[in-house]
Structures are given as C-alpha cells and as structure tokens.
Design a protein around this nucleic acid. Structure first.
Length: 597
DNA sequence: GCCGTTTTCGGCCCGACTGTTTTCAGTCG
C-alpha cells in the first residue's frame, strides 16, 4: 500500500477545498475554510499522520481536523482513495491543479482557462497556457485583458525559474539579504525604525519573500530611496506606501512604510503567522474587537486604537508580549493567557544567542584523512575565533578517518597524533577549553567505523548519518539506536539528515530515539548549517517535551561558519527552548561534567 | 466541516491591490 506523507495529504485537502470553491463558493464557504485549515495544520504537524493512524487512530487530536476529515483520511490510508473526495472533485478538470502552484493563478482563473480551452493533461498544461497567452488568446476571454495575460505569463516565467508558491529559500540565505537591506535603509535619516516581517521575523527555516517594514513620517522619500538599492535587478511595483523589487539573484523584496504611531499594529499584522493572527482575531471578535494592520477597532463604536509598538497591542488584548518565533498557533496564545492569569505553565523564557558558551561541532584542517570533507582553518585559528566569540569551550569534531584507505593501526595512529595536537593546544590556551571529539558515521548496519580503543582515545563522540537515509523505519530506527549505544557518544549530530529543498530526513521512530537519548543524557543536535537546520523547530519541541536536552552547533568548516549560530538558536527558540534545555549554555565546569560523564 | 472563558448550536478574520469593471472578482498576505 502506498504511503501518504503529510505534505501529500495537505495538498489533497487543498484540492478538495478548491473543488468546493469552484462548485459553489457561497454554499460551501465553511467547508472551504475547514479543509484549508486542516491542510495547514497537517502540513506543519510534527508527526506523520500515517504513523499515528497505525499506532492509535488519533487523527482528530490535531486541532483543525475533526471527525469527518479524520474519517476521510482513514479511508485514504485504507483504500488509497476517498469516495467523498472523488464525488466533490467530479467535474473539476485535473489539469487545473498544477496551475495552482504557479504565481498569479488562483482557482477561478485556472478553471476558466482550462475549461474554455479544454486542456486535460496535467503534465503539459502550464506550457499550453503559456502558448495561448503568447498568442493573445487569453486576453480575449471575458474577465481577462492584456494586463492580466501579461501577469499570467510573468507567473509562468517565475514558475519555470523555480519560484513556485511553495518553493522557499533557506532561512540563513534570506536573512543575510534582509540584513543587507536593513542596513541600507538605516542610512536614510527619514527611517525611524526598520524591522523584518513575516516568516523572516519569525525565523522560520524557509522563507518565501523578504518582507520589511519601515516606520517613517515621509513614506514617499523612503520608497524612492528603497528602489535605488544598488543590487536591484528588476522593479516589480512602486506605490505611495509600498514597493517591491527582485534582487540578489532572484529574491523578491517587499517594503511597507507606516507612520510611527501605527507601526506596532503593522508589525504585528505582517509578522503573522496567518494562523496565529486568525486565532488572535477569533478571540478578539468575541470581546467585540476587530484587529487589523491599522490597529484594534471597537466594533460597536467604530473607534480605532492605534499602537506604536507590539507590546501595547498584545497588552490591549490582555496578553503578555509573545516573541515572534512562537507565533505559529502552537499553543502560545493559551500559554500567554495562562501567564496573564498567573497560572502555569506560561510562555517559555526563550534562550538567547548570548546564552551560548561553546560550539562543539566544528571541523579543522588537521589532516586525519577523513571519510568526508576537511575544514579550511587550523585548530589554532578555530580556537582564536572561539575566543573572539566569547566562548568558554569548543569541540573539534573532524570526520573519522576513512576506513577504505586505512587499517586499524593507521587509524589509531592518526587519532593519537591528532589527540596530541589538541593536548598542546589546551596547554597553551588556558581560557578556551578544547574538546577532542570526532564526528563519526553511523554505518548502514548501525556499527561505528572505529573500535573501542580508538573511541576511548576521544573525550566524546558525535555520531551522525551520512548515507542510506531511505532505509525503512524499523531498520533505520534500530540502526540509530545501535549507533547511539556506545558510552562515548554524547551528541547525535543533525539527527534526521534532512537537507532543505533537496532531501527529506530519515523516517525513524523518533519517540523511541528521544526516549533513549533522555535515558543516556545524549544531546540532540540543532545543526545551524544553512541547508540543514536539523533538528527542525517542531522536532525540537517534541524532543524537549519528551525530556531530552539539545545542543546547538554550527558544523563550521571554517572560521566564517561560527556566525551561523544565531540560526540554530532561532530554531531552538521556535522549538520553545529555554536556556536549561540546551547543554552548551552550561558554564565550563558543568559542561565538562556532562561531556566526560 | 470545526469548535467551545457567552455556545454541543450557531457562529466562523481582515484588508490591500489590481484589473476589468461601472460595483466587483480574483489573488495575495
């Protein structure tokens, strides 16, 4: 039987919503909302539905999934299809669905074009529409025109360049672009405040557009200045209070300007997430308030309250300030409410970058003839860098020597030689404690490529997956548990092995793995490397709820890599981590006790 | 179709922008 991922299920539910919308938007208004809401919830769910369905049939535990949709999903797992969905989707041409991922195409336009021109092949529909548009046939349709035909062509061009509605940049890449433009904007004296918005401000692991907000009482001046940004590639639009352009190799940058006295409401609104805002508004509307980017309106009198900062906005609603990283409708509003009433547990006191005392997963250029890549900088240079970061300790975790070109004696010699080098370093550097670690592959059968003697020459081991990610669940779970079982193992490096936009992580029984890590006090790594950010935010939340501790590392292969720490910390914050949940916030002596346990 | 600090029934978030239109439909965030 085919397995369905959460992503596929979410897509199916969205297609059902679209079908309802095309059949009778008024009549099915609330089904449309319900199906889309369920899709949103399932897409971000930390557990794969296919798993909980097999284990305990608790699908409607997910908020937004009720008895009806849960039953349909059960049917999907059992039969591979859902009769009710097929009924609803009857008469809706299959060829519209691929178009829905193309910018500027919505259900109505896609449906109109596909049915009038009788397009039926989902695989070629995008090219066919492009041809029609190029020959001017779309502009002739009622409700379309020359301009909308152009917009659709622009959308198709973007789509072909890889910018689908669902394709997103990795956070560090988008954040770096955002920072550059923020710096640029700050040079304009009319700019009173600048903030990033949307998923970028919430530090989500992937980002669509780079959205920015400026507080200023001279919007025209700021917009003119904004569109003169030197790295601009193509201007998209420029209005009196907002503008957009493409820059830095295809990223879309949007700016909104608002007066200082309303800046708080703008910030709150466009930081989102959508789900957080919807939940907030549903609560507010029951008390007679309507929330928007302009402020909070009293519905009866129509009086608008304005807010210069977000803190006051939340305060007006009777809530403490909620950090952007928590605004995902994952329980933060209830927690804020409890906190306001003096009940427990309230909002977490999130970890800060300045709490970090060391980076344990770094690679040096010491040639240990490793199984994977070397770092670029020397042990000395890496230590200097750690000192300049204010760290109390650092771990060198070069990859283990490759087993192909070496016999056991060679490997022992290499590890010994490297150990001596680190000893020397510790004698000459009294203020930064250097740990002698290695990053060791968990081989496909769960063995480690080092023997006991070799492992015992280390102060600790990071173990991680670097191959065979697609083993089935049972096999990969046993493999990981076996790999973690040596007493020298202190850290499970980038646990799922996912690469953003290119490789799904391992499909393992994470509950069992978390429970083992808790027992052995092994830290689960949050790896800050751009394409990894692994564990992910939802997995971190699950891990600490299971009683585990995490460690935030950069996996630096050069001194430049150290600056990635803030992204790992962001993942931790999104996973509701406090300082106490993260082992590398411990002061030197306590950390040593944990590492050498 | 979902859900509960007015509710197991009767509600269900808000607004901007654009283009094609003479008052609104579609898309987006």
């Amino acid at each position: 039987m085919k397995k369905f991922t959460n992503f596929e299920i979410a897509r199916l539910l969205r297609n059902v919503a679209v079908s309802y919308q095309l059949k009778d938007e008024k009549k099915y208004r609330f089904q449309i909302i319900a199906y889309n809401k369920a899709a949103d919830a399932i897409e971000v769910s930390p557990v794969q539905l296919q798993d909980i369905y097999l284990e305990e049939e608790k699908l409607d535990k997910i908020s937004g999934v009720g008895p009806s949709i849960a039953a349909h999903i059960q049917e999907l797992f059992n039969k591979g299809r859902v009769d009710h969905f097929q009924d609803i989707m009857k008469g809706v041409p299959e060829a519209i669905f691929p178009l829905l991922d193309v910018p500027n195409f919505g259900p109505k336009k896609a449906y109109k074009i596909v049915s009038i021109f009788k397009l039926s092949d989902p695989d070629t529909v995008t090219e066919e529409v492009e041809k029609l548009a190029n020959s001017g046939r779309i502009a002739e349709l009622e409700g379309f025109g020359k301009k909308s035909e152009e917009d659709l062509l622009t959308g198709i061009t973007q789509f072909k360049e890889g910018k689908t509605k669902s394709n997103r940049m990795a956070l560090p890449f988008a954040h770096a672009i955002g920072e550059q433009i923020v710096d640029y904007l700050k040079k304009n004296p009319k700019v009173k405040r600048v903030e990033m918005l949307g998923s970028l401000r919430r530090m989500r692991d992937t980002i669509g557009d780079v959205d920015l907000a400026v507080a200023s009482n001279d919007a025209g001046n700021v917009i003119d200045y904004f569109v003169k940004y030197p790295r601009i590639e193509r201007l998209i639009e420029k209005g009196p209070v907002s503008a957009s352009f493409v820059a830095n190799g295809g990223a879309q940058i949007d700016l909104m300007v608002q007066s200082e006295k309303r800046f708080g409401a703008l910030l709150q609104h466009f930081t989102g997430s959508k789900q957080h805002n919807v939940a907030l508004r549903e609560r507010a509307v029951r008390s007679g308030f309507s929330l928007s980017e302009r402020g909070i309106k009293e519905v009866k009198s129509g009086r608008l309250h304005e807010f210069a900062n977000e803190k006051d906005f939340y305060k007006f609603l009777g809530l403490p300030y909620i950090e952007p990283e928590l605004r995902e409708d994952r329980g933060e509003i209830d927690a804020a409410l409890r906190q306001a009433q003096g009940k427990f547990p309230g909002l977490p006191k999130l970890i800060e970058v300045t709490d970090i005392k060391g980076d344990l997963h770094t690679h040096t250029n010491f040639n240990i003839e490793p199984s994977h890549d070397l770092g670029k900088n020397s042990m000395q240079e890496m230590t200097e860098k750690a000192r300049s970061m204010g760290y109390e300790y650092i771990g060198f975790a070069d990859h283990n020597p490759s087993t192909s070109g070496h016999n056991a004696d060679d490997i022992t010699k290499l590890i010994k030689k490297r150990g001596k080098e680190i000893e020397h370093l510790n004698e000459s550097n009294k203020d930064v404690r250097v740990y002698n670690l290695l990053e060791i592959d968990i081989l496909p059968n769960g063995d480690l490529p080092l023997n006991n003697e070799q492992l015992n020459m280390l102060e600790g081991a990071i173990v991680s997956l670097h191959s065979a990610f697609t083993q089935d669940r049972e096999k990969i779970t046993q493999r990981i548990l076996k790999g973690l079982s040596h007493p020298k193992v202190r850290i499970f490096g980038h646990p799922t092995g996912r690469l953003i936009n290119s490789r799904a992580g391992a499909d393992a029984d994470w509950d069992s793995i978390f429970s083992f890590c808790r027992q052995e006090d092994i830290a689960l790594e949050i790896n800050s490397a751009s394409q990894r950010l692994d564990l992910s935010d939802v997995m971190v939340k699950r891990a600490i709820e299971a009683g585990c501790r995490v460690i935030i590392d950069t996996d630096s292969h050069s001194v430049e890599g150290f600056s990635m720490m803030k992204y790992g910390v962001a993942v931790a914050r999104r996973g509701w981590c406090e300082k106490r949940n993260v082992v590398n916030t411990l002061p030197g002596k306590e950390f040593e006790k944990w590492m050498l346990k």
